[in-house]
Amino acid sequence: MKNGKAAFTLPGVLADIPTHYCPGCQHGVAQRLVAECLDELALSEKAICIGSIGCSVFIYNYLKVDSVEAPHGRAPAVATGVKRARPEAAVFTYQGDGDLASIGMAETMHCANRGERVTIVFVNNTVYGMTGGQMAPTTMVGQRTTTCPGGRCADNEGEPIKMTEIIASLGGTAYAARVAVDSVKHVRAAKKAVRRAFEAPLNNLGLGFVEILATCPTNWKMTPVQANKRISEELIPYFPLGTYKNLMGEQAAEGTEVEG
């Protein structure tokens, strides 16, 4: 039915090439949502992507925008420099939880606290994916990883860090939300949140932050379908979805409701 109207089209800014991700890894969905928002907001020519370290590192292969690769965890610091040197650019980072919540915690918090006009897309899969499944700050209590083979123990390693709540509490943040991409309904809601996270700095209100809960079937030692179920059964009860801060007001927020 190729003569018919397409019910689904890939955004033009997304490179249509095979990804390096494992089967069922939701980085693919996350980066597609970013690409769709870049297309809708017509940012492909003025966007500058700051890559991070981890499985998210190859974002520069998949998005056809100018990119800078940052040292581990320092993407928000690099984004700060890029944005201040090129204020007209739409600057965003694409980071995983090992990068953003661990080694990059200081850079992330100070970037948000200063209210840099950048967007942070944070893909949280509760584990260090690329390096082989070590415990991350967001690893769930009881979750087995290679560095906590008996499961994360709250007494020794503490509770998983809730980054969106932390970022939302900082003064420079204009928009902070947590979304998931485990169901069609959640994917549609995630798209709106990513779009608002891009709109907040474009409207000169402050930092836009969106946390996307994603699976890592390989390091969770699960099938993709089991891993996807874990999102709704284990992760969402601890990491509640929702908008934690939105300075754009109802009018701006309603404007994005049009997009399905």
């Binding site: 190729k2 397409a6 689904f8 980085h27």
Partner: peptide, 15 residues
């Protein structure tokens, strides 16, 4: 198509 992480699905509307 929305859930596919690898952009493997193409969907067309039926007339």
């Amino acid at each position: 198509a929305l859930i596919c992480p690898d952009y493997a699905v193409s969907v067309w509307r039926k007339p």
